[in-house]
């Protein structure tokens, strides 16, 4: 019974939200405000029981671990932001967070997003095994695989040239920069395509719910 009520509620709220595509209306507004309210309440309760309670309240007030006074004080300082006159105090805990994360991220980020990536581009310009595969079993995929290394190399170099602004993009240098733009455009196009796929997937998810779980047509 509860499940049925839940499905009906979800179906109606889905229709309320989708009604915005026709035009703004009170049903959409109702669903929107309800979502904001429920989300706020959900996260408030969740943060208390899953973060504040196990990580601060229990160890400090029930287990007597006094070291936890430091995060408590930093937390209170953060809330000072709500009082305009002493809002500047919140900058201190923020500085602490930014500093900690910067220190933590710096080396790891450099390793996984720069060094490992650069290392991956340091490969043989001519992939002999891929060319061998192409000549043994000719085909478009085999050909693309064989030329992938030179294409990546050209893409990386010309892409970097495009972002080199200390010299005017003219002549041969400008030509390379233009090739770099083409590579960037292809990358943006791929991102755009994937974004469309994601948005359509969400629509499919909602319509599948309406047709399958609610109306039981499929």
């Amino acid at each position: 019974m509860l499940n049925t009520i839940g499905i009906w509620l979800a179906a109606l709220l889905t229709l309320f939200i989708l009604s915005f595509l026709y035009k703004d209306n009170p049903f959409y507004k109702f669903a929107e405000y309800l979502f904001v309210g429920v989300s706020a309440a959900y996260w408030a309760v969740y943060y208390y029981y899953n973060i504040l309670r196990p990580n601060l309240i229990l160890p400090l007030f029930y287990q007597g671990q006094l070291l936890y006074i430091i995060p408590l004080v930093l937390g209170i300082m953060m809330v000072m932001r709500l009082v305009p006159k002493i809002g500047w105090i919140s900058r201190w805990p923020l500085a602490f967070i930014v500093g900690t994360y910067s220190g933590y991220y710096l080396i790891t980020y450099l390793q996984s997003n720069a060094l490992d990536q650069v290392q991956a581009t340091l490969m043989s310009f001519i992939d002999l095994s891929a060319w061998k595969e192409f000549f043994t079993h000719p085909g478009l995929i085999a050909f693309l695989s064989a030329i992938s290394v030179p294409v990546i190399t050209v893409g990386v170099v010309t892409g970097i040239i495009y972002f080199f602004f200390s010299r005017e993009h003219k002549g041969v240098f400008g030509g390379f920069a233009k090739i770099g733009i083409w590579f960037l455009m292809v990358a943006f196009g791929a991102s755009f395509g994937y974004t469309i796929m994601a948005r359509v997937s969400l629509l499919i998810g909602r319509l599948f719910f309406l047709l399958h779980d609610w109306l039981r047509l499929i």
Binding site: I152, Y194, A198
Partner: peptide, 17 residues
């Protein structure tokens, strides 16, 4: 991953990460 974020992970895939 979701489709929106997928292109960002291809460099990790190509690098064997």
């Amino acid at each position: 991953v979701t489709a929106v974020s997928a292109p960002a992970f291809y460099p990790y895939l190509n690098a064997g990460q």
